[in-house]
Design a protein around this nucleic acid. Sequence first.
DNA 1: TTGATTTATTTAATATATTAAGTAATATTA
DNA 2: TAATATTACTTAATATATTAAATAAATCAA
Lengths: 144, 144
Amino acid sequence: MANLRKINRSLPMQLLLARESAMALFRPMLRSFGLTDQQWRVIRVLASQNNIEAFELSQQSMILPPSLTRILKNLEEEGLVKRDRDKEDQRKVLISLSAKGQRKFQQVVPDSEKIYRSIERKVGKKALNDLLKQLVALNSSLEA
Amino acid sequence: MANLRKINRSLPMQLLLARESAMALFRPMLRSFGLTDQQWRVIRVLASQNNIEAFELSQQSMILPPSLTRILKNLEEEGLVKRDRDKEDQRKVLISLSAKGQRKFQQVVPDSEKIYRSIERKVGKKALNDLLKQLVALNSSLEA
DNA sequence: TTGATTTATTTAATATATTAAGTAATATTA
DNA sequence: TAATATTACTTAATATATTAAATAAATCAA
């Protein structure tokens, strides 16, 4: 039987495992605030850029447009985000956090930062920064 | 407004981005063989270990049991895998590749390896190995 | 040895991912 | 400017993710 590298030595698998290990630390906290991983990604992006186009939001939150449509529908029903048509270009939808959404963000930030700092302690600040740099380099290598 | 690190500087986000960049290179090839990412993960594990328990398969393929149940149902309907009850412990299900599943694996391996080697060239063999080592280290740090 | 507990998997319900197709608004071009 | 193409998003269909609950077999405890 032809050989393939052991699955646990493959780059995509190690990236998946690493991401799962990291997210496992955030997930219970996010759930306690009634948020899914993706909803939190969306809210984070919106907290830093108000009235952002759906396409931009999709890129920055790494959520494909069809998923984003549903996620925004849910967040809108919960009153956390607002959607408006762009007056200049009626095809575009501009999305922003509601006051309630901003409060939700504020509530989550301290716990999120606490967990991130505990990761920094476990991994080591230097090792973490090195890793981030290598991931950025990897991404630009792979795009090329 | 309280501050949170920019989303694109967070570890989970960079891991997600890196994984997507890598998987984007494999996906068209896998689809051309009629396989989803997850189905290929399952087949890879089965190719190296026949008659594996569902729980073990779940761990190694990084697919939670409820998802695995459906994935195995689909793969079984396509005749790629077989399921048998463990004679010793009737709770357990033992899974293995059918002859057809083994042929499918053999068909995909060359293309998969070709893509992996192109990644090695783009990223650099040393950089890739370093990164893998750091990811392994990260995983053990985070579990601790 | 029966009743309670644990283990291994499946079902169910809701959320997200992926690909393809559809729709409406805008831009382009002959 | 009417026909065509493109853009920005949504809908649809199928696959997977996540959490909770259910089921059935095995184990444990009294």
